[in-house]
């Protein structure tokens, strides 16, 4: 079954000018497709460019090079206000820091309704209030919370308000930028469960950005591993987990602490030599069906053995 592509990223580059130090290549030529209705995980350690990738896709940054094709249209060449507004409704984002992602001077109602105000989705205040209440219920909060201010909520509750805000404009595609990394363990599960439920109910597509591989493995259908601005490996999540090929993926997987003392006692870490990493001449090649690795022609043959 060939699935429909909702998003195609082609050779995306995002370089920042860092003055005398030269150019920082935060994202250095990455390509991937995301299919409608799936969850695509993007993992990597801090500074690997995963968040920049997400922000560039949603146009918070203008790409240095490359194309982002969403629903068949290149979003980075869209210029008319109408096109951009339509794009803003279809693609939404959930942010990392539950304390910084809500405006402290706005009530929960105003925060959630912001998208409706901008796009004129509610005819009157009554309709808007009703919709906000409905959204609050969807994310597991009470109607009474609408008139409160963000500082009165806990991290998990705030994150759910952030999700409600994104949902208010009925998007098809949501970029979740480390949505759980600032939350407590028990609260992480609440948010992940909520995201999964919403996906089933509304047929959402997620780009799930995180550094916690175990949670990404749980929520994602396919996972891409990023290192130094490039994707080093991309595969279905079980395949990636059980059969990692790139040495960086292996080291990353072997470093995840597992909540099982017996397993931890017998753990052996795979070390990755950062200084020997040289992507020159390498490109993302399909080693097996659906399993891509950043490698040279020769390395590919080795992987395939």
């Amino acid at each position: 079954m060939k699935q429909e592509k909702i998003l195609e990223v082609k050779d995306l580059k995002q370089h920042f000018d860092a003055g005398k130090k030269g150019v920082i290549k935060a994202v250095d030529g990455i390509s991937f497709d995301i299919y409608r209705g799936e969850t695509f995980g993007l993992v990597g350690e801090s500074g690997c460019g995963k968040s920049t990738t997400g922000r560039t896709i949603i146009r918070l940054y203008n790409a240095t090079n490359g194309e982002v094709i969403f629903n068949g249209k290149d979003v980075h060449s869209a210029k008319s206000k109408k096109d951009l507004k339509a794009f803003n409704r279809q693609m939404q984002m959930i942010f990392q820091d539950p304390y910084a992602s809500l405006n402290p001077r706005m009530t929960v109602k105003d925060i959630i309704a912001e998208g409706m105000d901008i796009h004129g989705l509610a005819k009157n205040d009554q309709e808007k209030t009703a919709r906000v209440h409905e959204l609050l219920e969807t994310v597991g909060l009470n109607k009474q919370h609408a008139s409160r201010y963000p500082h009165e909520f806990s991290g998990g509750q705030r994150q759910r308000i952030g999700i409600a805000r994104a949902l208010a404009v009925d998007p098809e595609f949501i970029i979740a930028d480390e949505p759980i990394s600032a939350l407590d363990v028990s609260i992480q599960a609440q948010v992940v469960n909520l995201l999964k439920e919403l996906q089933q109910e509304r047929g959402l597509t997620y780009l799930f950005i995180a550094h916690d591989l175990s949670m990404v493995k749980y929520i994602s259908d396919r996972i891409a591993v990023m290192y130094a601005g490039r994707i080093v490996e991309l595969a279905e999540s079980d395949e990636l987990y059980n059969n990692p090929l790139h040495s960086y993926t292996k080291s990353l997987l072997s470093a995840i602490p597992v909540p099982d003392p017996e397993f931890e006692r017998n753990r052996e870490r795979v070390l990755f030599d950062h200084s020997s990493y040289n992507p020159e001449g390498s490109e993302l090649r399909e080693v097996k069906a659906g399993h891509w690795v950043l490698c040279t022609e020769e390395e590919m043959k080795q992987y395939q053995v």
């Binding site: 984002m93 001077r105 901008i118």
Partner: peptide, 28 residues
Amino acid sequence: GQEFVLAARTLGANDKRILMKHLIPNVL
């Protein structure tokens, strides 16, 4: 650069809205 301002931008808010609703109330 705070995430709530980025969130407003991804929702399609224009400069005026960001200044009036998000920045000035917080600098007040």
